[in-house]
Structure formats: structure tokens, C-alpha cells
């Protein structure tokens, strides 16, 4: 209760500070007024966002959204999105935040704003034992499947030479299906995704070949919403120290949060 009122106070103060910014409706102010925050979440990216047996979204990102709503003291309106439409949702003001395992790069930062990191994400290249690949140089002449626009897509695309063919699938399901059906032998994906595949005990087992990047996920919001950004960063920082983020990580990723997140 105390914490909640503190956040509300911080939010109010931040709102005041934000009032001097160029005049347009402040997102945080609107959220506090309506008592509802609208958050875009994935539902095709386990364990960050998937669905339960009732088709309601569940996962790391959804728990994070709920945590933010709880700490702000407002209701959360969960808006399921795809990787193709998550940013337009934000830009057209249909949601206040995008919590969808977003990676950050300069080109994206020109369009939207990001909070601090809220989730760890390691991605690597995975493939069956029969393929001898140990580094990015070994990829020459190989075909690698990846989910278009994901963190690993952006990172790996920058690292590879001309000899590597990238196959970019619409969503994670496409990437996983392509791997399991043998359409691609190597995939670049998150360790958690590979673990999810292994859990199903498939014929073709995705073993780690090499680590591409340790690149955490960020929450996306519209530019100029400094008050909202400050409030969210506050919540993230608090969740990291009080163990609530740790609990989410243990539940969905089955591992502790890394020290440097």
C-alpha cells in the first residue's frame, strides 16, 4: 500500500515535471485518470507470451504487464499483438506500452522510446549434432532460420558475411516449424525457445552451437512520454531489488536473473 502510494506520488510529480514539455496529452496522466493502462503483449513467443487453455495470454511479458499495473494501482488492459503490428499499435496510441521481448537498436530508437531492461535474453545459433558449426565464421555456406525482426535477427544479420543465407519467418512458430520439419537445419533463437523445443523431445534436437548475443529485452513506449518512462523505470528498478522480477524469471525461464541486467 505504501509502495503504491509512493509510486502514485512519483507519478504525480513526474506528471507535473512533464507538464512543461511540449503540449500534448500526457500518457501517464491519462492512465491515472482513466485507471487503466493498455499494454501490448505477444502471444506467439513462449515463454514470454503464449496462451493458456482458455486462449488467454500467459507468460513472462504478461506477468510483467500485470506487475506494472499493480504497482501503478491501475487496471491492465492486455492487448495481444503480433510482431508485425506491435509498433503501429503504439504509434497510433492504441496501447501505452509494448512489452513484447523488444530488442533495442539505433534505427528503432529513432521511432520509439525504450525503458530500462526488464528481462534477460540470450540468443544463439542452434542445430543438431550432425552439423559442425562453432562460430559465426563457420556459418559460411549455411542456411539459418530466424524470426523476422527479433533481437537475434538484427544482431546476427550484422555479424554474418555474404556466404550465409538467412531465412526470416513471420513469427516464432514459423521458425520452430521450419526447424522441426527439417526445412532449415540451423536456427538462431533464444535459449529459452530452444529449451521449449527440447522439452517436446523432437527427433531433431536443437543443441547450442555458439552464443550470438546477450541482449536483454526492453519495454517500448512513445517518444516524449518521459513521465511514463520514469515511472516504469522506477517500477523495474524496484522489482529487480525486491525479488518480484526474480520470481517471474524463475517461473517462466526457469533460471535466476543475471547480475548485470
Amino acid at each position: 500500500m505504501q509502495r503504491r502510494s509512493f509510486i502514485a506520488l512519483a507519478a504525480a510529480l513526474a506528471t507535473l515535471a512533464g507538464a512543461t514539455a511540449p503540449a500534448h496529452a500526457d500518457a501517464l496522466e491519462t492512465i491515472m485518470e482513466t485507471g487503466t493502462i493498455r499494454i501490448a503483449v505477444p502471444q506467439d513467443f513462449p515463454p514470454f507470451g503464449s496462451v493458456g487453455t482458455d486462449l488467454q495470454p500467459v507468460g513472462y511479458d504478461i506477468d510483467m504487464a500485470m506487475l506494472i499495473g499493480e504497482r501503478l494501482g491501475v487496471d491492465v488492459e492486455i492487448v495481444p499483438v503480433t510482431s508485425a503490428n506491435r509498433i503501429p499499435y503504439l504509434q497510433t496510441d492504441m496501447v501505452d506500452l509494448v512489452i513484447s521481448s523488444l530488442g533495442k537498436n539505433a534505427e528503432r530508437e529513432a521511432v520509439i522510446d525504450f525503458t530500462d531492461a526488464y528481462a534477460p535474453f540470450f540468443n544463439g545459433v542452434f542445430g543438431p549434432d550432425s552439423i559442425d558449426v562453432g562460430s559465426v565464421e563457420d556459418l559460411d555456406g549455411q542456411i539459418v532460420g530466424v524470426t523476422r525482426g527479433s533481437v537475434e535477427d538484427l544482431t546476427l544479420t550484422d555479424m554474418i558475411g555474404d556466404g550465409v543465407t538467412m531465412r526470416r519467418y513471420e513469427d516464432n512458430n514459423g521458425t520452430i516449424s521450419a526447424f522441426l520439419s527439417g526445412q532449415v537445419e540451423l536456427i538462431a533463437t533464444g535459449n529459452v525457445v530452444a529449451a521449449a523445443i527440447l522439452e517436446r523431445d523432437p527427433d531433431i534436437r536443437p543443441e547450442i552451437k555458439f552464443l550470438v548475443q546477450d541482449s536483454p529485452c526492453y519495454i517500448g513506449l512513445n517518444q516524449g512520454e518521459d513521465a511514463l518512462k520514469a515511472a516504469i523505470n522506477e517500477i523495474i528498478a524496484e522489482a529487480k531489488t525486491d525479488g518480484s522480477l526474480e520470481a517471474i524469471s524463475m517461473e517462466w525461464l526457469g533460471q535466476e536473473l543475471p547480475e548485470d541486467l
Binding site: 523476422r148 538484427l154 531465412r167
Partner: peptide, 22 residues
């Protein structure tokens, strides 16, 4: 949807990089 690199793939590829979907 199956990563065939047609015009829609190009559009989706570009908007996943520049976030300028419209």
C-alpha cells in the same frame, strides 16, 4: 509467411527494421 521473399516479405522485413509500418 513461409519466408519466401516476395513483395510482402520485403515490406515486413523493412518495417521490422525501421518501424515505419504505415
Amino acid at each position: 509467411q513461409v519466408a519466401a521473399e516476395d513483395l510482402t516479405y520485403a515490406a515486413n522485413f523493412i518495417q521490422s527494421r525501421n518501424f515505419r509500418a504505415f
